[in-house]
């Protein structure tokens, strides 16, 4: 399966060679069979530095087909550097259709956010993961963390949450908030805000996580239980805002604070640009219909 010469050169469809894709797909299948388990894979060098999403890109490259419609987001936005360059990368190496609309996409690669719109069956989310091991900052030895996973010894993670409460009066971890998948493996959901954690639970879409530098793939299959860790007397809760989105008025989305001048001016807007735009278009249409 090679791309036509019109797309320049001798790169294979979606950059990776077919054997590499097969290897990654096998890792993905294993990851789906063991929800939350980190499957090692032979990560390839990609034409960009680690930390730019090489894990997610390899996963996307292995699953993308000619009929797919790709959406790439970075911090919720479709128009930031990381999102634009990854989208262009796949546009050049596959020629598949791309979109900014969550509803139209079959594959959504993301960094740091999940879309506000509910995902559907058949859609696939690909997360870029910097550090896949949830126990890493608590236990430096890889051999030991693997044993801890094997024996489901996860008490130490609660020690971390305990420390949060003891020092700050509440669980202050706001992103990359540890979850337990399917009642078994402890998992880092990648640096999404904990606001998005409830969306992981029993999501109809397939969620794939790729860590390029650490060469690990893990997955949350559709409709899998994902529980955010907490204490009985300090239950998990998501952040909330005193504002609504300054552009679309949404009160149910994750808001970014944007500084507008050097006199203390600031506004709060949806971080999910597609969600915000969709709401504004709908409002416009409603207003027109009302006239």
């Amino acid at each position: 399966m090679t791309t036509p010469d019109s797309r320049g050169g001798s790169y294979n469809f979606a950059y990776l060679d077919e054997q590499s894709k097969r290897m990654i797909r096998r890792a993905i299948l294993k990851a789906v069979a063991l929800p939350g388990y980190q499957v090692p894979f032979g990560g390839r060098e990609m034409p960009m530095p680690h930390g730019w999403g090489t894990g997610g890109i390899q996963v996307t490259a292995s699953i993308i087909g000619r009929d797919d419609v790709l959406k790439v987001i970075d911090q919720g936005a479709d128009d930031t550097t990381n999102a634009v360059s990854i989208r262009n990368f796949f546009l050049r190496t596959t020629g598949v259709a791309t979109t900014e609309r969550t509803a139209d996409a079959s594959i959504i690669q993301t960094r740091h956010r999940m879309p506000e719109r509910k995902l559907q069956e058949g859609q696939i989310m690909v997360f870029q993961v910097p550090i896949p091991e949830p126990l890493r900052w608590l236990e430096p030895r890889e051999s030991e963390t693997r044993t801890m996973h094997a024996l489901a010894e996860y008490g130490i993670m609660h020690v971390r949450l305990y420390e949060d409460i003891a020092r700050l009066g509440r669980i202050a971890t706001a992103y990359d908030y540890p979850v337990q998948v399917n009642g078994r493996y402890l998992m880092r959901p990648s640096p999404i805000p904990k606001f998005d954690n409830p969306k992981l639970d029993r999501n109809p879409a397939l969620l794939l996580f790729g860590a390029g530098r650490e060469k690990r793939i893990y997955a949350v299959p559709p409709y899998t239980d994902v529980k955010s860790l907490d204490f009985e007397d300090h239950p998990f809760e998501v952040q909330s805002w005193d504002h609504t989105c300054a552009l679309c008025g949404a009160d149910d989305s994750f808001l970014d604070e944007i500084v507008t001048d050097d006199k203390g001016g600031r506004m709060f807007v949806c971080s999910d640009t597609d969600y915000c735009a969709e709401r504004r278009t709908a409002d416009g249409a409603n207003a027109e219909a009302a006239e």
Binding site: E153, G155, H158, V159, E163, R167, F231, D233
Partner: peptide, 22 residues
Amino acid sequence: VTAGANIGERLMAVGTRHYGNI
């Protein structure tokens, strides 16, 4: 980690999930 967490670690390891009790 703090003295309290040091003492509480074994409790959390065996499944205690109530901050106040710990």
